[in-house]
Amino acid sequence: MISILVALSMCIGSVFAQDYALEDLNDTSEFFGELVGPEDFSGQVTLHYFGHFS
C-alpha cells in the first residue's frame, strides 16, 4: 500500500499550491546559502514579495 501511496504522491506533487526552493542570497539572513521556500516555513505566516531588486 505504501508503494501505491508514494506513487500517488509523485503524481499529485506538492501539498503547497505554489512553492519554490531557491538559495537564500541575503548574507545577513539566518538561512543564507540554504534553499528556502514556503514549505520550509510551514507553521508560520509567510509573506512572499515579488520584485526586481529595485
Partner: peptide, 10 residues
Amino acid sequence: RELFIMDHTG
C-alpha cells in the same frame, strides 16, 4: 511588486 501572504498551512 506583487505580494502573496500564506497562512500557517501554506
